[in-house]
Design a protein around this nucleic acid. Structure first.
Lengths: 256, 256
DNA sequence: GGTCAATAAAGTGTCGACAAATATGTCTTC
DNA sequence: GAAGACATATTTGTCGACACTTTATTGACC
């Protein structure tokens, strides 16, 4: 029960635990979980009270998040949570597909035999019972599967870019995996990709990869409805309190 | 003209000119021009003296530069200028080629006729005398040419990513354009690309684009030697002063 | 002479304070 | 009652100060 936690606030004047990093992780989590909602303005002072930090490390964290696309910045009017648009997400998926397919191509062209074996070995080691795992685990394993391809491409920028993109779509992927019946096609698709890689079959692997990603996208589109519901209907966010004056003009009329 | 020498410091208490932005632009320039050299440690205090700002906006600028890959960050030991490695650059170019070729493909598949015309029109308007222009202009026009393709892809993430990548290779491109005899092939290549786009010729355009980029890369490799020379041999950098103690123990002995 | 430890110097990380800028509320005028 | 002008409150931008880490210097010891 992380309920209270707060009252003895100044308990630890312990300073040096890299506040900026902590702020980054925390705010990122808030964003991923929709505790901070799309389009919402981010109030630095309020955040700094919540996290019991000064604004400096929070600002630093927000800057990082802005460069990753989680939030947007406008001079003299601070940070806003990036709006949640279908188009934007599909663009991200498309870009991801572009880079991943290129990565596969490079991997097939360049990787040593031993490296490909390592790739196949990884998949074999997690293949059984893949669908049975917890959603978070599936998500992580799938990401590692694709990240391995990126690494074996031999281009060091590719995994960097890809993980940046993944970070931005992970929140929706989580919803997708939880909500959609993730059929065994996922396993089959991975099988196909691994086989094609071992055979160094460019065309086949590319096609399989493309199918796999397109399937993920359509599953995501379905999931997006759920996400939008979760965001705009469900009541969440301990941060969301508006302790504003709401008590003032109590005209209980057309309630929202 | 008062010879007050030093105390003119606080001349302009003029505050509000978005120091962070100014710091960002200035430091970025220093990096691009090798005034701050690869691998060099960046001293925040020193920089803040040079720019006559406090460390806060400088830190903000450095964070942005770090997320763009210009500098690297290590907790408790600050920022370093990103090392200048051939491998890293080639990886970036490769990634750029991947995204650009995909953008071309999408453009050909999706763009309206009128948009393609706009693209062709842009190139026509700058084509004549292209090689005669100043290096900086050529660089900018070339970037706009490619950025137009990215925009017409219809994927909003593509121009974003591409301009981030461009930012990281621009410094070397500038050197390349200045040093290498930029033959007319550049113009011819652009011609080919525009023609292919108007014909909606996927294969031809892709091939032309690939050739164009590969040519740029090899030119860059040649330029890299010059760059390394410029960095490690030439004497530059008014920032480089070591006003250390040198005056203190004047023991004109063996000393280094 | 070289290695290591203690100590000093330099540099980074975070804070609280205040100025500039923007948003909100109130009053006046029509 | 609406639009605009002014005053007030909130929020962001920057600063200087200081605590904590890392790095350089000194000196003891082998």
């Amino acid at each position: 029960m992380p309920e209270k936690s707060a009252p003895e606030a100044k308990s630890k004047p312990k300073r040096s635990a890299d506040s900026a990093e902590r702020a980054y992780q925390t705010v990122r989590k808030l964003l991923v979980e929709f505790k901070l909602r799309p389009n919402e303005r981010i109030n630095e002072v309020q955040l700094s009270r919540e996290l019991e930090l000064s604004r400096t490390p929070i600002r630093e964290a927000l800057n990082r998040l802005a460069s990753e696309g989680f939030v947007q910045f406008a001079p003299n009017r601070g940070f806003h949570v990036r709006p949640l648009s279908t188009d934007g997400l599909l663009d991200l998926y498309e870009l991801r597909a572009i880079i991943e397919i290129a990565a596969f191509r490079l991997m097939v062209e360049r990787a040593e035999e031993a490296e490909l074996d390592r790739f196949a070995e990884f998949w074999r080691s997690v293949r059984d019972g893949y669908q049975m795992r917890a959603p978070d685990e599936i998500l992580e394993l799938d990401e590692r599967f694709h990240m391995l391809i990126a690494e074996l491409s031999g281009n060091l920028e590719i995994p960097v870019q890809l993980s940046a993109i993944n970070a931005r779509i992970r929140f929706i992927r989580r919803i997708q995996i939880e909500h959609v019946s993730h059929d065994t096609n996922q396993v089959h698709a991975h099988d196909e990709i691994v086989d094609a890689a071992l055979r160094r079959d460019l065309e086949g692997g590319e096609a399989a990869l493309r199918r796999h990603i397109e399937m993920t996208v359509s599953a995501t589109q379905r999931a997006l409805k759920d996400a939008l519901f979760q965001v705009y209907e469900a009541e969440t966010s301990p941060l969301q309190r508006r302790k504003k004056r709401a008590a003032r003009k109590e005209t209980p009329e057309v309630e929202k």
